[in-house]
Design a protein around this nucleic acid. Sequence first.
RNA 1: UCUUCCUUAGCUCAGUUGGUUAGAGCAUCUGACUGUUAAUCAGAGGGUCCCCCGUUCAAGUCGGGGAGGGAGAGCCA
Length: 476
Amino acid sequence: MKRTKIKDILKNEESGYQVNVKGWVRSFRNNQFIAINDGSCMGNIQAVISLETDPEIVKNITTGASLSIDGTVIPSLGKGQKVEIKVDSITILGLCNTEEFPLQLKNKPSLEYLREIAHLRFRTNTFGAVFRVRHTLAYAIHKFYNDRGFVYMHTPIVTASDAEGAGEMFCVTTLPINNPPRNEDGEVNYKEDFFGRCTNLTVSGQLEAELGAMAFSEVYTFGPTFRAENSNTARHLAEFWMIEPEVAFNDIVDNMDLAEDFIKYVIAYALEHNREDIEFLATRLVDEEKQKPMNERSEMGLVEKLEFVLNNSFDRITYTEAIEVLLNSPHYKKKKFQYDVKWGIDMQSEHERYLVEKHYKKPVIVTGYPKDIKAFYMRQNDDGKTVAAMDILVPGIGELVGGSQREERLDKLTQRMNEMHIPTDEMYWYLDTRKFGTVPHAGFGLGFERLVLFVTGMTNIRDVIPFPRTPKNAEF
RNA sequence: UCUUCCUUAGCUCAGUUGGUUAGAGCAUCUGACUGUUAAUCAGAGGGUCCCCCGUUCAAGUCGGGGAGGGAGAGCCA
């Protein structure tokens, strides 16, 4: 018989038909009641076996074992579920030795412990929900851009471009690490390396995406990026996924509109299609926050927070206004900021958090940053001091999006590159876009895992990517 | 990389002023159980108290060093 997904049985609530179900045992009670989960949804189906079932089989129905069950869907005789399966025949597909199985669901294992058994943690309610939501968000991202006529562009993972200077990079080489070939001056001779030059894992697909935008008008990338920074925080990974749309003919305001529409679209899509998972994560969050003192708990539940974001427009302020808000804040006057506030600073997390969590209490888009704290490719404003950059700051996460209108004027761009000591000769291919039919254009980058954090209410980024890569950790 | 907290049974945690044989709940094992919902009931087994060095008659407990983890910070997405 063809397998039926548990999600479909639970959803249509009908009874009186034969099914085959396959999945893993979540619990087995009273020698009769098997709670089976196949990952298709949060819920388990209850399969009821007869007390005359072969004791050899009953013995092997243990938490974690995999089963195939044939039976009839009937209205449940007990409370707690509408339908259940009356089992006709049962096959153990894979045994699970309970003495060795490290996942004891009844103990509510900590997230930290589950991280150590990341290969098994998908079998918990929490991680099941997180990774179903992650999938839905990824799908919604492609759907959003596809529906708007964007071309999904695959930018390279291995790159020779180190121009952006967006942090430390991982070197990609096939040279022997102990004894690499060297030039006369003692430097490693990359001419003998696989690509004939020094190559790295990409830190961003933006520059390549700009090349695509100069032909397709609107493109986006969605792929892995790598940073070899020694950052040990709940918001950083060495390997993470980033979405980077790039749109020709867009200015900074179009860019903000796109980013806001995009974020709202994917949140709405997840709320619609993974309501049950998000509601479970919401109760999980409430439980977790019970450990915290009152003043550190969230004011809104997870679902309310997401709906609030959907139903309110993001506040849009300039960097200059943001600094004024900070300078006029009671927090500043009581000298509660650790870092000084004045025009020209690169705002610290404490400043961003104050703006977004205490002052505006919703997502905020900050534009017009000082040019000296931003990248070379951002378009210079007429004031000569600021650039058309935009960051979207979100409660609990900080910077979710960073983007800008790009500098499309060749002379201004090369001048800025020279000032910042970026080699224009190596970047000829990038500058060619400005030489041959340049147009105003804009784009942004959104860290996928930070989006997943926001939507799931999880607080550590290692818990929203299946196999996190962080300093000193690449197991599994 | 910095600050700070933590590390005791498979998991989550108690452990008093340094003092006999280190405890609990859950999990596991054995048995019971014809409607359970984190099933329940009875019994049993289970410890390199993170590692090293030191103080002491005596260290899970005190001191120093190291490792691992959490939270915050820097950098950023």
